[in-house]
């Protein structure tokens, strides 16, 4: 597999090229910012009718990662739905996929700013989750110690090597996951609001064909 292993608080984690995080010790797969049903929310709020296939695309990608890792637990790290009303718009086909993916494993929805309440789609709803030395929550907090979060949709462009790609960012205290959903943009990793969350010594793992480890300037 074209993955990158790294350590946070003594725990070995694996960054998958898709943007998912794999914790082999706890057999947990974590994905952040799925933004399912984003097109429905855009139609409702802006009157634009974008191709309504992003939930299908995102769930297919997630199904492939689950197939490859066989997790005992799946953690959706917030903003899984573009808003709570959008969760109701998930079509039957996608609901069925989701039910199949949930079968035989723990499924945890962490609350995000887009989806602050529970959805009627199985699984457990939590504000945070503690797993070994790591705390999973949607938005990074001050002074963390072993925190895994999402929310910022980090991306990074390697100098001289083309467009920015969604990326994992980590230092010795925290990890921020890239957005996993199909219709998600990114925030450049050097943007102060994001960069300042990390120590000067900070690493990025780019997603794409292969996960690619590099250091943030």
């Amino acid at each position: 597999m074209n993955t990158v292993d790294f350590q946070l608080r003594g725990l070995t984690l694996t960054a998958l090229p898709s943007g998912a995080l794999w914790d082999a010790t706890h057999r947990a797969l974590c994905v952040s910012d799925l933004h399912l049903c984003k097109s429905d929310r855009i139609a409702r709020r802006q009157g634009l009718m974008l191709p309504p296939y992003e939930s299908r695309e995102t769930l297919d990608k997630l199904a492939a990662d689950i197939e490859a890792t066989h997790p005992q637990m799946v953690i959706c790290l917030g903003d899984s739905f573009d808003d709570l009303a959008a969760a109701e718009a998930l079509d039957d086909d996608c609901r069925q996929t989701l039910t199949q993916l949930q079968a035989g494993r723990r499924w945890i929805w962490i609350e995000g700013n887009h989806d602050p309440g529970p959805v009627e789609l199985g699984g457990t709803h939590l504000a945070e989750l503690q797993l070994g030395p790591l705390t999973y929550r949607h938005i990074a907090e001050n002074a963390p110690s072993g925190e895994v979060s999402g929310h910022y949709h980090p991306k990074f462009a390697l100098p001289g090597a083309g467009a920015a790609r969604p990326c994992f960012l980590y230092d010795d205290r925290r990890l921020i996951l890239p957005a996993y959903g199909a219709y998600t943009g990114g925030l450049r990793a050097q943007t102060p609001v994001l960069r300042d969350l990390f120590a000067p010594q900070c690493f990025a793992i780019l997603t794409g064909r292969k996960a690619l480890l590099t250091r943030l300037p």
Partner: peptide
């Protein structure tokens, strides 16, 4: 370009 990306990533790590 993938090769270039790997080189660029490695260069940043090297520094």
């Amino acid at each position: 370009r993938e090769r270039l990306a790997e080189e660029a990533a490695a260069k940043l790590l090297d520094t």
